[in-house]
Design a protein around this nucleic acid. Structure first.
Lengths: 125, 125
DNA sequence: ACAATATATGAGCAATCGTTCATATGAACA
DNA sequence: TGTTCATATGAACGATTGCTCATATATTGT
């Protein structure tokens, strides 16, 4: 059951009961990987700013670029990342493409993150 | 007030009212940057696994390495990242250092992320 | 003081990321 | 059909990241 316990970590201090217990309770690898991928998408300030902008209003690519003062190309590349992560949806209207948020969890996740980041005890770097 | 609106994005389609409105409502740059930094820390599957392990129990470095089947060095490096982000705390007991989670928001953020990542409508890559 | 053990850290390297630049696609209108 | 405008995309680049390996630090017991 725990034959690979010391396969890579050769040190002696392992508390087997705790290790085995925690191992058995960890969510499966695939879900953990997906969760990390989701956070990775949130882990860039350009994408955070795009998401926060879309909290306010549906917007076209060019308007988002104007809000963030960045190039259309940079925004378009990032919107692709958000699209692939199913975090934004879009609708076409003539030449213009309007983007909006597609997931109810985003707001909750961001609210918690803002609370963490604005705590009084926060030590500024 | 909006003199840099077209400074880098020269295209014509800008809807000024929306852009100005959204611009005025965006949280300040520093907070947005901090939030992105927080998500960046969560955006790695090794750190996600460490955090999930610590949801179960306080653990020493070597036990975490055993649970994740990784080297002590790799875990120690990642614990430093988590420490700097104020996400874990530690206590020393002789030669052993026990790590545990230090922030109540983490569990909420992760719960929402797990919900997002395990939705039925999830399109698998 | 010395050896053993648990953890931390610095250098180096391969891999990934975010932007820019040039260009392609797609829609509207002459 | 050709031109214009809005958006998308591919290549290339510099920067950052996560691991490994070697070694340093800190604590305990002899």
């Amino acid at each position: 059951m725990n034959e690979q316990k010391a396969e890579r970590c050769e040190i002696e201090c392992i508390h087997s009961e705790i290790v085995d217990n925690v191992k058995s309770k960890l969510p499966n690898e695939e879900i953990l990987y997906d969760v990390a991928e989701l956070f990775k998408v949130f882990g860039d300030s350009t994408r955070v700013r795009i998401i926060c902008a879309l909290f306010e209003d549906e917007m076209c690519v060019c308007d988002i670029a104007a809000v963030l003062n960045m190039t259309q190309s940079a925004i378009s590349h990032q919107l692709r990342v958000l699209k692939q992560a199913r975090l934004v949806k879009y609708r076409r209207e003539g030449k213009t493409v309007f983007y909006s948020l597609s997931d109810a969890h985003i707001k909750n996740i961001f609210n918690q993150a803002f609370e963490h980041s604005t705590e009084d005890t926060k030590i500024k770097r």
